[in-house]
Design a protein around this nucleic acid. Structure first.
Lengths: 110, 110
DNA sequence: AGGGAGGTACGAAAAATTTCGTACCTAAGG
DNA sequence: CCTTAGGTACGAAATTTTTCGTACCTCCCT
């Protein structure tokens, strides 16, 4: 069972769920941006500049969280996102390298 | 440019297109089934037992073909599908291993 | 205490994807 | 030659996903 905030444990992660999460252009951009960051970096959910309303943003971050790709941490009145790099690498070895190789898409093609 | 039948060349393959192709449950099943086969096996498009009409089947195989995941070859009056294993491995190393590890889903879960 | 930034939940609208039916084509086999 | 199996193209229906607006909550700051 996922934890109360909806984070699955490492072995609850499912490849098809992860692929669906990454299939959306905005979500891919978020993950690719995190992959390009140094290890353990936390970023504001707002810092990705997604061209959508905040309720849509909540929706996308929920899907990323429930797929196990990111961990969201409460930091006072805002929420930070961190890539679950080790868990992803352990469960789906090589996936992060593939995303890193593809790079962060430009906003317009996504 | 893709060839006349819509197969992209190796370096025209795009990770996001591939991920979108794999995000559909039926298409994932097809690819996972091909991954589980020995190298170079060709299978009838009908042999996967997809629970959809033939026009829908055409649609899904087109998406797989245009993503570069399979190559479709005319064999008289029918068409065979073959995994583009080497191209996929060259362009997205590790991806096939991830799919192989996930296994072929049971029909009911997708 | 009050205002503002950042978030979530919920329901509905909009857009994209999947699905099917029909019509049509080609090749293989009787 | 005719039938049948396997496919494609096109348009429309059904479903899913994305998107947004509104209402509401919490924490920080003044």
């Amino acid at each position: 069972m996922p934890d109360p905030e909806g984070h699955p444990s490492r072995d609850e992660m499912d490849l098809r769920t992860v692929l669906s999460a990454l299939a959306d252009p905005l979500r891919f951009r978020v993950v690719a941006a995190l992959v390009a960051e140094p290890e353990r970096v936390e970023r504001h959910c707002t810092s990705f500049g997604l061209p959508v309303s905040k309720s849509t943003r909540t929706h996308h971050f929920r899907i990323l969280r429930e797929a196990g790709l990111i961990r969201q941490v409460d930091r006072g009145n805002s929420r930070m996102a961190r890539l679950r790099r080790e868990d992803i690498e352990a469960r789906f070895p090589g996936l992060i390298a593939l995303i890193a190789e593809a790079g962060v898409p430009e906003p317009q093609d996504a």
